[in-house]
Design a binder for these strands. Sequence first.
DNA 1: CTTATTGTATCTATTGAGTATACACAATAT
DNA 2: ATATTGTGTATACTCAATAGATACAATAAG
Lengths: 127, 127
Amino acid sequence: MIQIIIANSSDTPIYQQLFDQISAQIIKGDLIGDHGLPPIRTVAKELRVSIITVKKAWEELEREGLIYTVVGRGCFIVPLSEEELLAKKRRLASAKIEKDISYYKNMGLTFQEFITLSKELYGSDDA
Amino acid sequence: MIQIIIANSSDTPIYQQLFDQISAQIIKGDLIGDHGLPPIRTVAKELRVSIITVKKAWEELEREGLIYTVVGRGCFIVPLSEEELLAKKRRLASAKIEKDISYYKNMGLTFQEFITLSKELYGSDDA
DNA sequence: CTTATTGTATCTATTGAGTATACACAATAT
DNA sequence: ATATTGTGTATACTCAATAGATACAATAAG
């Protein structure tokens, strides 16, 4: 089942929060393919959010090839192999990392400095 | 002299673009301390932008301790030692990296994956 | 075929951020 | 005094995000 937490205080738009959290869960394999998502009306109601907002998030998910839609039936998670999930993850991550890095480079941060800071801040998963 | 390029097409607010570019130039040492910035009216006029927008950017720069203001005289770059500049750079970078990383972690990206992708995308300054 | 369910489309409306213009005020320099 | 520069504020415009409501389209279930 999908788990979503909306932070109205956040400066991140609600539809973006939805996309981020659901795409993360799909990519992590927490939401298995073929599994159906709840009707957007239901999601909107439970989260006390506009249908439009949910729709917007779902559209992005579909654009990323993570869900598909059948009018009259509902929205479903695209069944993806482990390999495909990994590719999706890399794709989403790369898009963001690329943008972030251009910012770091502009401020004159060298790769070494970047790595050093990242290591400190990543919370030591490993290395 | 300050060099600024405004991209109206960008989704980044103008005042943010101003802050980013000027703070970067200060931190890199391109703008030397004690040096005065042009009057905000002048900057606004040359960039064809509202004074309010420039003001907003300048306020952030002041908040970061990069410039200081004297009413009636103008705005000036805070003279900082190499060491202090480096500290500022780390501070600004860390703030952003920390936010970015929380996003990567949420999408289930391990530190190793993150490093691998970063290495590919940083454009090989070094290693 | 009828009815319920679900996604789609659209209209109207509100809120807030970002931005612009203009004018008056405060502090400093000459 | 006068010019220059920063500050403050009032007004206004645009756009993204969001909400509420209603009608339509496709599918499912009976």
